[in-house]
Simulated scan of single mutants.
Amino acid sequence: MVSRRHFLRVAAAGAGAMLVAPQIVFASAETERRFVFVIQRGAADGLNIVVPYAEPAYAALRGPLAIDIDRATKLDGTFALHPSLAQMAQMYGEKQALFVHAIASPYRDRSHFDGQNVLETGGRAPYQVKDGWLNRLVAMLPASRENAIALAPTVPLALRGSVQVSSYAPSALPNASDDLLTRVSALYEADPQLRSLWTSAMNARGLAGDASARQDPASVGKLAASFLSRPDGPRIAMIETGGWDTHSAQNARLANQLKALDTMLASLRDGLGPAWDKTTVLVATEFGRTAAANGTGGTDHGQASVAMLVGGAVAGGRVQTDWPGLRTADLYESRDLKPTASLDALIAGAAAESLGLDPQRTASTLFGDAGTKYAITGLIRV
Rank of each mutant, 00 (worst) to 15 (best):
L254P: 10
A172T: 09
I380V: 09
G243T: 13
T182G: 11
G297I: 12
P217D: 07
Y188E: 14
G349I: 01
A249K: 13
R9A: 12
Q128N: 06
L357P: 05
R318M: 08
R5N: 02
G42Y: 07
T154I: 14
K373I: 00
A186F: 10
S212K: 00
Q116E: 08
H82W: 02
L173E: 15
P52Y: 14
V382K: 06
I347G: 02
T263M: 12
V25R: 02
V314W: 04
K278L: 03
L8S: 00
A57T: 15
F35C: 01
D131I: 05
L119G: 07
A66N: 14
G311N: 04
I24P: 01
P234K: 03
A12M: 06
A148I: 03
G132C: 06
M18Q: 13
F113G: 14
A43D: 11
M1Y: 01
D76A: 07
S364R: 00
G123R: 12
M238P: 00
A176D: 07
V184Y: 14
S354Q: 03
K338P: 02
A304H: 04
P22K: 05
Y188L: 12
L173A: 13
L137G: 01
L379H: 04
S305L: 06
V50R: 05
A213T: 03
A352G: 02
L187T: 07
L337N: 00
A86L: 04
T182Q: 09
R9Q: 08
G132N: 05
E333S: 08
G63A: 15
A186G: 12
T365H: 01
L19A: 07
S144F: 06
G161P: 08
L337P: 02
L61W: 12
F26K: 00
A363S: 02
K130S: 11
Y374S: 04
G46W: 07
L326G: 14
K278Q: 11
A304P: 03
F79Y: 12
W133Y: 06
D277I: 02
V319Y: 11
F99Q: 11
F227D: 02
I376G: 01
M308A: 11
G14D: 05
Y168N: 00
V100D: 02
R41W: 14
P153C: 15
V155D: 06
G16Y: 15
A348W: 00
V138R: 10
H6C: 00
E94T: 01
S248N: 09
P170E: 05
L355Q: 03
D336G: 14
A143M: 08
G14Q: 08
A255R: 09
A97R: 01
L47C: 10
I103N: 00
S177P: 08
G221H: 05
K130I: 05
V138F: 03
I236E: 04
A315Q: 09
